[in-house]
Design a protein around this nucleic acid. Structure first.
Lengths: 208, 208
DNA sequence: AATTAGATTAAACGCATGTTTAAATCATGC
DNA sequence: GCATGATTTAAACATGCGTTTAATCTAATT
């Protein structure tokens, strides 16, 4: 039977694989189309440009991730005592949901996010802000509530450091995971990285 | 009088400015030579390649920074009670020394370091490891001594998160600093970023 | 002053990128 | 079964990159 896969899907799948492995700038349209087994010009035909393709790849995940995150934030909101670590743990559920998009969806999405931040993808930030800005504002508000001892300025910096740690962990992720596996002789995946990251960032936010 | 500046120095100065502003990959030799007011080919004549130029730019700082850092680590070693935060504070002295290279040396150097890590500059890592590997080993040893409650694996991950936070802070530095200045209506420089970073990473390392 | 080694220059090379073109092919509705 | 619109294709285009070449200029040495 071999269900026919549309050219668009073939391109998205190949692009997602290569983008998450090597980054957006390091991946050429020629690599993508070769991997997908389609013609070079079909990217511009179906998506218009490389930038638009990048957005389309991200959108497949964001559309699933963001509503579930918002849902979790709503739940957190109702708790009386709001702890930072518990807030970050809420990311695990929307993240896990991404297995519905792809078996390794959580890993892939986090790496894509990391590249989106470390490379300067202005158009992506604009898109994310526009489509999902509300959810992110909500998160910031809850973080402030969980850390009333931090003034605005401290909160500002530490949030960005957290972002940096997370982004870096994912971008250097594959390399780091390989080193860790060699070092500790046990399997490591994105979930393990997150599990180590959460107490670190929570600890970093917590101190006065 | 207008002391004659050698072509090499002109190139190094222009490259340093552009590299630290835009990153290594984003800066072309044509930009550099135009900024320096020299011929395009002179980069390859004097340095051999773009990679070698990048190394030369970094070397001007590393040669000053690393010996002073090692000196500080020696001093820290002699303390009986070794606290993480105090260890990180020792970075401020070698960093401040960089004003001798350039008025904004500390800012520039940290940004260059950030780009060196976030872009994949394998040759740079090799060079640093070879020339200054000893100092870095020393730092790691002291960190372990200051955090005996963390096992090898936790230490491994948190160190990399620290690195990520620091790198990100510097690479996104200019943008962040501008946002912070607008937000808090006061001057901010690399030193301030470091001052906020130190308690964050120390807090993150400290928790069990 | 002539020679010579070093420094500078304009131009071109070779390659890779994203994008566009125009012709060929395919699939669908009448 | 043919016409029409969507898709696919191979090729070329335009641009930017790091690097190389070969000629020219400069300045110090004999």
């Amino acid at each position: 039977m071999a269900a026919r896969i549309s050219t668009q899907k073939k391109i998205l799948n190949a692009a997602e694989m290569l983008f998450s492995r090597d980054g957006f700038e390091q991946t050429s349209l020629r690599q993508i189309t070769q991997e997908a087994g389609v013609n070079l010009a079909s990217v511009n035909y179906h998506f218009g440009s490389k930038k638009a393709l990048i957005q389309a790849v991200m959108a497949r995940y964001l559309i699933v991730f963001m509503p579930v995150l918002e849902e979790q934030l709503q739940l957190a909101e109702q708790q009386s005592a709001l702890k930072t670590e518990e807030l970050f743990k809420r990311f695990k559920i929307p993240l896990a949901k991404l297995t519905e998009v792809n078996k390794h969806g959580p890993d892939i999405f986090l790496r894509l996010l990391g590249f989106a931040y470390s490379e300067i993808q202005g158009h992506l930030r604009k898109y994310t802000q526009q489509e999902f800005g509300g959810v992110l504002k909500h998160l910031l508000a809850l973080l402030k509530r969980a850390n009333p001892h931090l003034d605005e300025q401290q909160m500002f910096w530490r949030l960005h450091f957290i972002l940096g740690a997370a982004v870096f962990a994912q971008v250097s992720g594959q390399a780091l995971i390989e080193i860790a596996q060699a070092e500790f002789k046990q399997k490591v995946d994105a979930q393990d990285v997150i599990d180590h990251l959460i107490p670190f960032v929570s600890g970093g936010l917590g101190e006065a």
